[in-house]
C-alpha cells in the first residue's frame, strides 16, 4: 500500500493537504512532544500515526484498529516512558499502546499494553499527566467520572491500577474534556470540563483529589474542550475553555500554593470546538467553523486578542493558493 506523503519546502510555504485516509470524521489530532510525529483518531475505529521523515515528508507509519467503536481522543506519553500512546473510545475503554520497533507492517507496529475498562459509558477524553508526577493517565467518561490510573512500575506498562475515581458530574451528564495542570511544585491538579469546569487538586493530607474551584458554567451548552496552559514559572495559571460560541480564559492566581480565580475573560468567537496552548502557555489556539484556527495572545493589558488566523478549510485554502495568497488570511 502506497503511503500518502506530503512534501513541504519550508516554514513559509502555503498550506499542504494530507489525506487522512480515515473513513469517518477525525475526532482528534495530536502531535508528540517533539513535533515529529502526529497521530489522528477517527470514528472509523482506527488510529493512524504519521512520522516526519528527514526529507520533510509526513508518511504513514502506523495504522490499526484501536477500538470497537469510534476513537474519541488520544494522548502521547512523555518519551521518557517510551513510545507510548493512549486512546479512548465509545466502546467504554481506554487503551495503552506501545510501539514495537521491529514491526514489519504499519498495522502491527503498535501493540496494546493495557485495557482500562472501568468506565460505564463511552470514554470521551484522556490525558497523560506531566511527567514530573509520574506516569499517570486521567480519563473522562460520559458516565460523569474522571478516572486516574497510575503505572506503578514504569518498566511494566501492562499494569495500570485505577488510583482514583472522581464522580465529577451526575451520571447522565458526561465529562467532555479534561486537562492536567503543569505546575511543577504544586500537587497534582487537573481541570475537568462538562456542564461546567471544575478544578481538582490532590491533597497530600487527605490523599485524595478534591474539588478546589468550581468555575461558572458556560452561557449555553457545555464545555467542549478545556486546556490548562503550560506554566513556565508564571505567578498565575491560565485555563482556556472552548464552549461553542465563546472561548473563556480563566486566570488563576497561585500565591503561596493556593489557587484562586482571579479573573475571567470571555472571547466571542464564531465557534470554538477545540483549544490548545503553545509550549510556553502564551499563545492560545482555537478551532472553529470552516476549519479556522485562531491564535490568541495576551496584550500588554492582559487581554487576549486574536493575532492570527489559519484557514483550514481546503476549499478556501485552494482558493487562496490560486489567488497567490499566503497561508494566512487577514
Amino acid at each position: 500500500m502506497q503511503n500518502q506523503i506530503m512534501d513541504f519546502s519550508g516554514p513559509t510555504s502555503t498550506s499542504k493537504v494530507l489525506t487522512s485516509r480515515h473513513q469517518d470524521y477525525v475526532h482528534h489530532i495530536a502531535f508528540d512532544i517533539y513535533g515529529r510525529r502526529m497521530a489522528t483518531c477517527s470514528g472509523d475505529r482506527f488510529v493512524r500515526v504519521w512520522d516526519l521523515s528527514e526529507n520533510n515528508v509526513w508518511s504513514l507509519v502506523g495504522e490499526w484498529q484501536a477500538h470497537k467503536g469510534s476513537v474519541a481522543m488520544l494522548s502521547w506519553a512523555h518519551p521518557e516512558f517510551g513510545s507510548m500512546l493512549a486512546t479512548c473510545g465509545s466502546d467504554h475503554e481506554a487503551k495503552i499502546w506501545e510501539e514495537r520497533t521491529n514491526a514489519t507492517s504499519a498495522a502491527s507496529r503498535w501493540t496494546v499494553k493495557s485495557q482500562l475498562a472501568d468506565a460505564r459509558k463511552a470514554v470521551s477524553c484522556l490525558e497523560f499527566s506531566p511527567r514530573h508526577w509520574g506516569l499517570k493517565l486521567a480519563t473522562g467518561s460520559a458516565d460523569g467520572c474522571v478516572r486516574i490510573y497510575e503505572a506503578v512500575d514504569v518498566a511494566n506498562l501492562s499494569q495500570w491500577p485505577l488510583a482514583t475515581t472522581l464522580q465529577c458530574f451526575a451520571e447522565g451528564l458526561g465529562v467532555t474534556c479534561m486537562s492536567w495542570s503543569s505546575g511543577r511544585f504544586e500537587p497534582p491538579t487537573l481541570v475537568v470540563g462538562g456542564a461546567n469546569p471544575i478544578v481538582y487538586r490532590y491533597g497530600e493530607a487527605s490523599r485524595q483529589y478534591s474539588p478546589l474551584i468550581v468555575l461558572p458554567p458556560p452561557a449555553v451548552g457545555e464545555v467542549l474542550d478545556i486546556a490548562w496552559a503550560p506554566n513556565v514559572g508564571r505567578q498565575f495559571h491560565y485555563i482556556a475553555s472552548a464552549e461553542g460560541s465563546q472561548l473563556r480564559i480563566f486566570k488563576l492566581s497561585r500565591k503561596e500554593n493556593k489557587l484562586e480565580l482571579e479573573s475571567t475573560q470571555t472571547l466571542q468567537v464564531i465557534n470554538a470546538w477545540r483549544c490548545q496552548w503553545n509550549v510556553t502557555g502564551t499563545v492560545l489556539a482555537s478551532s472553529g467553523d470552516a476549519g479556522l484556527v485562531q491564535l490568541w495572545k495576551s496584550d500588554f493589558e492582559g487581554n487576549f486578542k486574536c493575532v492570527s488566523k489559519i484557514q483550514g478549510d481546503i476549499a478556501q485554502v485552494a482558493a487562496g493558493a490560486a489567488a497567490g495568497a499566503g497561508l494566512m488570511s487577514p
Binding site: V26, W273, Q276, N278, V279, A285, V293
Partner: peptide, 28 residues
Amino acid sequence: RIPPSCFALANLSPFQTGYGSLQVFSVY
C-alpha cells in the same frame, strides 16, 4: 460530539526547516 474542526499545534522540531515556528495540523 464530533468536532467539525479540530487541530493539533506544536513547535516545529529541530529537524524541520525553520524550527521554533508553530506547525498546525487542522481538519475541517
